[in-house]
Design a binder for these strands. Structure first.
Lengths: 195, 195
DNA sequence: TGCACTTGCCTAAGAGTATTAGGCAAATCT
DNA sequence: AGATTTGCCTAATACTCTTAGGCAAGTGCA
């Protein structure tokens, strides 16, 4: 009956490690209890339920990711900043696949609004200040960058690119070039919308 | 003890409907049995296990999606084809969120190779024939388009764009413009790779 | 230092899901 | 019709989630 010293923080941290090892959807209250060599019910004093645990892991991941992003953007601008931010996402997903998956968890609006998720959008906006975009184009660009970063990382991790020939690092570099070019020459709205 | 007429196909179909209603990760052998008013164990004559069921749903979704894509591309080229293909993904995800999530399921290499997933890549390549890209740039572009389509749809469905001002339809249209412009002016590789 | 109180982990118990083994009856074949 | 196959069933095991209530280890105060 020795006390192990469980806290919500330690559980969240261990849950994140577990996620990276076995996948976020394999993160279970039972598995976490095993990891602490403790009975399952004991966790319920620290975490409301399974959902709560997963949400905490997601928030941890979002915060870590935002911290890394802030770090990477510091002192950089233009294409350098673009590449730095992009690589933060890709590298984080590679180092911490479970956490990255957790960061994709759908949060309820209030939780999402209070999360580090908003910092991500702000940082992408900050990065775009190095390009010449005004609203609403800036928001469009924010969404495009988010889509490319998330989409690429997600497909690459899922093995979607594994069969084909060119190295994914090459593709990644070329995509960043392309985005840089695109942002420097952002096309004006067309006359005939959405053909 | 009346026979209900279960088959792998009917189970897969019903599983897909269930996924759209309650989410792909809520698709459970038990829930499916309830839907057919049948005992859980009965499903195991038709489906190997829960994993097998999910895989079948994923393959169904990939096929449906590829069929729609082929249909949309028929007789179109250039930007029109680009928009048509892009809208196939977005519309499918909206109409069938559970199926779309299923299509993201990680398949083992052999299953993936035999799936309709390869058709998707082929169709994106076909679309790119309307632009002036040679290998390996074509593959880079295939990956970029896949990333944008999947990333955007995924973030939009996850509510990632819900707070901000411009309509997501506007952003979508502008992103398609931007991609079209980009593909028509695909930048050459830079002298200094990956800064 | 001793005692009351709080807190942390425990046992117990109930519900849901996944999976296997073996049985009986309905459909199918000859 | 009788034999065979097939489809759904009951039964049983194991694992996960969750709540309720208990006891002992730690904490605070006299």
């Amino acid at each position: 009956m020795a006390r192990v010293g469980l806290t919500p923080e330690r559980l969240t941290q261990a849950g994140a490690e577990l996620a990276d090892e076995v996948g976020f959807d394999q993160v279970t209250v039972s598995a976490l209890a095993r990891r602490f060599d403790v009975k399952v019910a004991s966790l319920y004093s620290h975490v409301k339920n399974s959902q709560d645990l997963r949400t905490r892991i997601a928030l941890l991941a979002l915060t870590e990711l935002a911290d890394r992003a802030a770090d990477a953007l510091a002192g950089r601008a233009g294409k350098e900043a673009l590449a730095a931010l992009a690589n933060v996402y890709r590298d984080y997903a590679r180092e911490h696949p479970g956490r990255y998956a957790a960061a994709q968890l759908r949060l309820d609006p209030q939780t999402a609004a209070a999360s580090a998720g908003v910092r991500h959008a702000q940082m992408t906006r900050a990065l775009l200040r190095g390009y010449d975009l005004t609203e609403p184009d800036q928001t469009h660009a924010v969404r495009l960058l988010g889509s490319v970063f998330h989409g690429y990382v997600s497909l690459e991790m899922g093995g979607g690119f594994s069969h084909s020939a060119p190295d994914t690092d090459d593709t990644w570099a070329r995509i960043l070039d392309a985005l840089d070019t695109l942002l420097r020459n952002w096309p004006a709205p067309p006359t005939d919308p959405r053909g």
